[in-house]
């Protein structure tokens, strides 16, 4: 975690954080879709890891969005 993030909770509401979380989440979802449509079967452990990453990123995105609403509004 960088020094900027540690500087204050409000820093988490910056547009960069929201954008990076959003893009990361969409990229993982695209990978998941591609695997599903192409019928590529991964090791179960990798699939679980992918799903957990999506859930974590999705939760992080929602949290930073709520934080952004609370901080800026």
């Amino acid at each position: 975690m960088s020094g900027i993030l540690l500087a204050g909770v409000g820093a988490l509401a910056s547009y960069q954080i929201v954008l990076v979380t959003l893009v990361a989440c969409i990229v993982l979802l695209c990978v998941r879709t591609w695997l599903g449509v192409m019928g590529i079967v991964l090791f179960r452990r990798v699939t679980v890891l992918l799903n957990i990453s999506v859930i974590v990123l999705l939760t992080s995105f929602l949290l930073v969005v709520i934080l952004r609403f609370k901080t800026l509004a």
Binding site: L19, L29, T33, V54, L58, F61, A73
Partner: peptide
């Protein structure tokens, strides 16, 4: 593909949070 729903939601909320901030500030 349920991912489509999540992507649609991410883009909608993402735009509201970033692109439309002038509206809700």
């Amino acid at each position: 593909r349920p991912e489509l729903i999540v992507v649609a939601g991410l883009l909608a909320v993402g735009w509201l949070s970033l692109g439309a901030s002038n509206f809700w500030l």
